[in-house]
Nucleic acid binder design. Structure first.
Length: 288
DNA sequence: AAACGGATCAACCGCGGTCCG
DNA sequence: ACGGACCGCGGTTGATCCGTT
């Protein structure tokens, strides 16, 4: 038997795993601290439980990456439950809370890095102001200002207000899952007021499309989904009439005009670009 | 081939909740 | 009612892997 005198930490040895497995076979996955008190292993009960849950439990999908479907589920559930990894993991057979947590953290890091590449831009202008006339406004479309930002979502895009203090943006295509939780106590009203469908344009010298691209289809069909109601279309295609055709034309601080399609344009970006949504700024008193 | 940096994974820590004496 | 032990969870860290330069 392994010396149970001094408490051991760090990586588990195969012999330790065997002892732990043997214990669980006989006693079930409980009374973890008994493993130490009985002198079976020089490990804390916590450590034993963790080892069992994360590595030794049967039917774990160890060493296999999250499938697109699993990613989609995590993203949706994270938007719904927040960082409740254990709860989310219950929806994913063979995955542990640690798996989900690691997956999410990796994703967030990638996100942050992509943001850094795409940034840094000067402080944003009054947020989403440019879009305001496009949202149920009677302002003549022709006066719609030039975009400072650009719409990132391919249609259909859904805003899902899963709880009172956060929303998620989801593209319901399991193969290209993405969403971004936008914590804010002001939702969903704030969503309506400051539509968070914009994200900062990556600096062109970093992410320049190989060729000029043409819009191939209406860019957006966005719906707001309050927690318990049917979708409410609130940003319909016809609201884009302020833009010539279906083009997005934007001018950003010295960059040349830029034409893009929702598909082709984004194909030139890292997949995670779709995950990036500018956090909503604090609501400003609208003077428009 | 070596160095480097990002991604992934495993494990620990701290905290809060629950149970039990 | 209270306090200690235990458990479970989320956050964090460190080691290793792996791809790129």
């Amino acid at each position: 038997m392994i010396d149970a005198g001094a408490m051991r930490k760090g990586p588990w040895m195969p012999e330790e795993d065997e002892i732990l497995l043997e214990y669980v076979r006989h006693h079930g996955p409980r009374d973890w601290s008994a493993i130490r008190s009985k002198g079976l292993l020089p490990r804390t009960g916590k450590s034993c439980r963790l080892r069992w849950v994360n590595k030794l439990k049967p039917d774990l999908k160890t060493g296999c990456k999250f499938s697109p479907e699993e990613e989609r589920i995590v993203i949706e559930l994270q938007a719904k439950f927040g960082n409740k990894w254990a709860r989310i993991a219950t929806y994913l057979p063979g995955r542990t809370d640690n798996d989900v947590k690691n997956f999410w953290s990796t994703r967030q890091k990638r996100l942050a890095r992509t943001l850094q590449v795409a940034a840094p831009l000067p402080p944003p202008p009054p947020p989403c102001k440019a879009l305001r006339p496009l949202i149920g406004s009677s302002e003549p479309a022709a006066k719609a200002p030039v975009f400072e930002d650009f719409v990132t979502f391919q249609n259909p895009t859904v805003i899902n207000t899963a709880s009172s203090d956060q929303i998620s943006l989801c593209r319901p295509n399991p193969l290209t899952p993405f969403s971004q939780v936008i914590p804010t106590p002001q939702l969903p009203d704030l969503v309506r007021e400051n539509l968070p469908i914009l994200k900062r344009k990556p600096s062109l010298h970093e992410l320049r499309p190989k060729t000029e691209l043409q819009i191939q289809e209406p860019p957006l069909d966005l719906h707001l989904l309050p927690a318990n109601s049917n979708p409410i279309p609130f940003f319909a295609e016809e609201n884009f009439t302020g833009l010539p055709g279906h083009e997005f034309r934007q001018e950003i601080r010295g960059d040349e005009d830029f034409l893009a399609t929702p598909d082709g344009f984004f194909d030139d970006f890292p997949v995670d670009m779709f995950d990036l949504i500018e956090p909503l700024p604090p609501p400003t008193s609208p003077n428009w």
